[in-house]
Every structure is written in structure tokens, then in C-alpha cells.
Simulated scan of single mutants.
Amino acid sequence: MAQGRLGLLPQGEYVCALPGSADGSAWQEVEGRNFAITGASSYKAGNGSGTYLMEGKRITFTRGPMKGMRMMRVSSGMLQEVDRGGKLGRLRCHRAGPVSD
């Protein structure tokens, strides 16, 4: 069942991180989880490219190296991972800028 209107994420590079600690840095970037939204429903990750589906605020990566990963759009430039149980996880990805060549 659809969760809302179909949409597209803003194109650009997305950097993914976990919350840090009070005595260290605020965020810990997660190696190998960054990706770029490259066009209409398309993304590129370090080890390939694929497609995603955005229904309302829910994003599901449908093909490629991130297939099966689910995220929720929590603000205009911030996505948060959704776990298998449907709860928001700790991993957050923010749009860091335009797609680099």
C-alpha cells in the first residue's frame, strides 16, 4: 500500500554518519555508506548505482548496492535510516552539496 505521493530527493552528495559522544566529535562519518542522488530516482554509491522509490517521506532503495535499505526524510536535506521493525535507526545522511564529477 502506498505511503503517500511519489517524489524525488534533491540531487547531490549525501554523507552518512552516526551520532558521536559528549567527549568527542558530534558525528562519526560511516565509511562506505555515502551516496549521491544523480537524477530522477537514481543514485550512485561507491560500489555501483541503482534506483530508489520515494513515497511521501519514505525512501526505499529498490536496485543496486543499497537495495533493501529504507530511510525516512526527516527534513529537507536529512534522511534517517529505518530498521527492519519500522523504527528510526541511528544512521543519518545529510545532503552535503552538488554531485561531484
Rank of each mutant, 00 (worst) to 15 (best):
Q28F: 11
L9M: 09
G48K: 05
L6S: 14
T51A: 13
T60K: 06
M71C: 10
P65G: 03
M54I: 11
K87F: 15
D101S: 13
M78N: 08
F35M: 01
M72T: 10
Y43I: 02
Y43S: 03
R63M: 10
G77F: 08
R63H: 11
M72V: 10
M66D: 04
S100M: 11
Q11W: 08
M1Y: 15
A96Q: 07
L18R: 11
G50E: 08
D101H: 13
Y52E: 03
G89W: 02
I59N: 00
A17S: 15
G4H: 09
S75I: 01
S49G: 08
R73D: 07
R95L: 12
R70Q: 15
W27F: 12
L53E: 10
A36W: 04
G32Y: 07
S42M: 14
K57P: 06
V74L: 01
R70P: 03
A40Q: 13
G68K: 02
S25E: 14
R33H: 14
V99L: 00
R84C: 07
S41F: 11
G77R: 11
P19W: 02
G56D: 05
M54G: 10
L79W: 00
E55C: 06
A2D: 14
G68M: 03
M69F: 01
G48W: 08
G39R: 06
S42F: 12
S25V: 12
R90I: 01
E55W: 04
P10S: 08
G48D: 08
V15H: 07
R95A: 07
S76Q: 09
H94A: 12
G97T: 00
G32T: 09
I59W: 00
M69E: 05
G39N: 04
R95F: 04
A22C: 05
G89N: 01
D83M: 01
